[in-house]
């Protein structure tokens, strides 16, 4: 019983957004607006991957890099959102080890449940849900960084396949096949990992 929509990936065939012109005469105003529109979702995404403190730094760096590289941004080629998520994904690579350690720790932890489901779900399904989340965290730690990016940009960043391709600079077909592969892998390996983890915990 889920009380909220299942976060299935958004449709792929959305139009390629045409981005704003970032090279105008008043970069402070332009980037203020850009920040207001994109900083919160970007920060939410990064917090979930590397924690709030690193996310603050990464958002700051992302926009500073974007500011530096604004003349290289081509509004006709990519939406500004995937462009920013792409810069952030690059910067995130410096935090891979920190992220992996986080997922590993999470996979061993019994955390507090703050799911957005009904209180009945919060209690009745808590044990199973907690277990599944632990299993997933363990499996995420084992993914290749590029695979993790494709999966999480889709699932948490809510980018469609075209946008993920733009963000990571890979063809959309590659996004599809990677996503398919990584999901199949997680579906089989989360369960297997869990068995090991449970034995270890018990």
């Amino acid at each position: 019983m889920t009380a909220r929509p299942t976060p299935s990936p958004p449709p792929d065939d959305g139009p390629t957004a045409t981005g704003p012109d970032l090279t105008g005469p008043d970069p402070a105003a332009t980037f203020g607006l850009l920040f207001d529109e994109h900083a919160v979702p970007l920060h939410a995404y990064l917090s979930r991957r590397v924690g709030n403190q690193s996310a603050d730094d990464l958002v700051s760096e992302t926009f500073l890099v974007a500011l530096q590289q604004r003349h290289t941004y081509d509004p006709a080629r990519a939406g500004v959102r995937p462009w920013l998520f792409g810069i952030a994904s690059n910067l995130l690579r410096r935090h891979v080890r920190q992220e992996v350690r986080g997922w590993q720790a999470r996979s061993r932890m019994v955390g507090t449940d703050r799911s957005q489901e009904s209180p009945e779900d919060r209690t009745a399904e808590r044990v199973t849900a907690q277990q599944q989340i632990r299993q997933l965290a363990g499996a995420l730690a084992a993914l290749e960084p590029g695979d993790r990016d494709v999966l999480l940009l889709t699932s948490w960043g809510r980018l469609n396949a075209t946008e993920v391709g733009q963000a990571l600079g890979i063809p959309v077909g590659t996004v599809h096949s990677r996503l398919h592969r990584v999901r199949r892998w997680l579906q089989s390996h989360s369960a297997v990992t869990s068995r090991g983890a449970e034995d270890g915990d018990a």
Partner: peptide, 8 residues
């Protein structure tokens, strides 16, 4: 899988 991702 989606539920676990969503939960996390």
């Amino acid at each position: 899988l989606d539920r676990a991702l969503d939960g996390l």
